[in-house]
Amino acid sequence: MLVTLPPDYRPSENEEFMNPLQQEYFRQKLLRWRHDLLREAGDTLASLSEGGIAEADLTDRASVETDRALELRTRDRARKLIAKIDQALERLENGTYGYCEESGEPIGLRRLEARPIATLSIEAQERHERMERVHRDD
């Protein structure tokens, strides 16, 4: 079903959760985010493929190497984020987007607005983090 969003549309608590407008809003938000990450990755690839390190000074050379390593770690995180965005887009397609994987309850618009790839409600996320802390201390 093709849904056209009004230009100033923002999801509201006053409407049915994950109605077609909200679904399209989050789909567009996720696609924009994915597009931006891919564009940044392309820019990184272009800058890295410009050639070797031409710095003569050892300190400058080390600085450039460190910057490149940091950029590659950032790109790796972006790659993982793109995979999560793709999973969120899949959940939109199969009708499970916006619902907690643990409880099946709505995650909430404010949380989805802040973290569109969220799979857990705030309560479930807090439980998960508490369990991680408990088991990390072992």
Rank of each mutant, 00 (worst) to 15 (best):
L72T: 09
L21Q: 14
E90D: 14
R75W: 04
T74W: 01
L2W: 09
I117C: 09
E126D: 11
A41N: 11
E13H: 06
A46R: 14
T96E: 14
R34M: 13
A46G: 02
R79T: 12
T119H: 03
A114M: 11
P7T: 09
C100T: 06
R75H: 05
E102L: 05
R133L: 06
Q22F: 05
A41R: 14
E15Y: 04
I122V: 13
E55G: 01
A83M: 03
R111Y: 05
R61S: 00
D60F: 01
I122Y: 04
A41S: 14
V134R: 14
T59P: 00
E65P: 01
A88T: 06
E129G: 02
E55D: 12
S63D: 04
K80E: 12
D8F: 06
R110Y: 01
A78Q: 15
E71G: 00
E50M: 12
E101C: 01
M131K: 13
I107E: 03
V64T: 10
N19H: 10
E126A: 05
A118T: 06
R79V: 11
E93C: 03
T59E: 12
I122R: 07
Y99E: 03
F17D: 09
T66Y: 07
F17W: 14
Q23P: 02
R73G: 08
I53P: 00
W33R: 15
E13M: 02
A69P: 00
P20E: 11
R34A: 07
G95Q: 09
I117W: 01
R68W: 04
E24H: 09
T44C: 06
T119R: 13
A124T: 08
I53V: 09
T59N: 01
R133F: 01
V3M: 13
E93N: 13
E15I: 05
E13I: 05
Q125F: 02
Y97F: 15
R133M: 07
Q23T: 11
H35K: 14
L112S: 10
D67W: 01
T4R: 14
I82W: 06
T119P: 00
R32N: 12
R91W: 11
V3E: 12
H35M: 09
E13G: 01
D138I: 10
T119V: 14
D137N: 12
V64R: 12
M131N: 03
E15L: 11
T74Q: 07
A124G: 00
E40M: 11
S49C: 06
L30Y: 11
E113F: 13
Y97C: 07
W33E: 15
D43C: 02
L45S: 10
D76L: 09
R115H: 10
S103D: 05
D57A: 03
T119Q: 13
Y99I: 06
R115Q: 11
K29M: 13
A114L: 15
T119A: 07
L5Y: 10
G98V: 10
E24Y: 08
A118C: 04
Q23Y: 02
H135Y: 13
I122E: 08
D76M: 06
L5H: 11
E16I: 08
W33Y: 13
R27F: 10
